[in-house]
């Protein structure tokens, strides 16, 4: 817990530093028209750095030996996170609908151990339903890949 608290606080301080850097470029002063573009970001970031520094000190001084995530808990979390990241990555290449089908199928079979019939049914019907709702009814285009191009969508 201590390490995680420290890492988070440090990360936010670095972020604050980046903001300060850009705010200075924009001008942090107060012109005749009121504050310049960088005025608010600058002071917000300075406050952020200060608050995080205190939180960091608190994290160090309070000996909280609990781990941030236990090994037993990390497993299920990663089992949700990695497939989600994979979904986003492959969406860029093969489009959202095919990725959604693959993702649903893999997840249902791997985590849920559902029967192949159920897997197939959901993995086909769900993307198909979303396709019609978004592309046909609401005319909201989603990322599409080679399959949709081949079908002339």
């Amino acid at each position: 817990m201590r390490a995680a608290g420290l890492v988070t606080a440090s990360f936010l301080m670095v972020l604050g530093g980046v903001v300060v850097f850009d705010a200075v470029r924009l001008g942090i002063g107060w012109s005749t028209d009121g504050p310049k573009s960088g005025f608010f970001p600058f002071w917000l970031a300075v406050l952020l750095i200060a608050a995080c520094a205190v939180i960091g000190v608190q994290a160090v001084s309070r000996a909280d030996a609990r781990p941030f995530v236990g090994r037993a808990q990390l497993g299920p979390v990663l089992k949700v996170l990695w497939p989600a990241v994979a979904l986003v990555v492959i969406t860029q290449w093969i489009g959202l609908y095919v990725s959604a089908a693959l993702y649903t199928a893999v997840y249902m079979r791997w985590i849920g151990r559902h029967s192949w019939l159920a897997v197939l049914a959901v993995a086909v019907l769900f993307p198909l339903a979303t396709f019609f709702i978004f592309e046909k009814w609401f005319l909201v285009p989603m990322p599409k890949g080679p399959l949709e191009a081949w079908l002339g969508q």
């Binding site: 005319l139 285009p141 191009a149 969508q153």
Partner: peptide
């Protein structure tokens, strides 16, 4: 030429 898919 004619469009073959929806035009964004």
């Amino acid at each position: 030429w004619e469009p073959t898919k929806p035009i964004e």
